[in-house]
Amino acid sequence: MAETHSDHEHIGIPGYLAVFAILIVGTWITYVVAFWDLDSVFPGANTLLALAIAFTKMTVVMLYFMHVRWSKELVWLSAVASFFWLLIMFAFTMQDYFTRVSGVFSS
């Protein structure tokens, strides 16, 4: 990817600082909203919001700090695929736990 790099400046120092600012603000929001009772809106809303912010932060880190935005399709693919496989693991494990009826191992 040498030539890609010499062609692109990426985002330069101001860009990196902007990403940094987003990450700090994201952390701050995560911290603050954890103390709001969002679970009264619907159960799990607090966790959902926290994860949404974490995902945003991760995306920013990957796109800009890890240069995924300027990388080849394969890098995009491996990033997306690994999360897809995580999703498989989470979803197919939890579908079992969510649908237990009763018995020794229920819930």
């Binding site: 969510f98 649908t99 237990r100 191992f105």
Partner: peptide, 16 residues
């Protein structure tokens, strides 16, 4: 996507 077929009788839910 198929690993649960090793666990049919191990207490996994019927739906799974």
């Amino acid at each position: 996507l198929v690993w649960g077929h090793h666990m049919f009788v191990s207490g996994q839910s019927i739906y799974a």
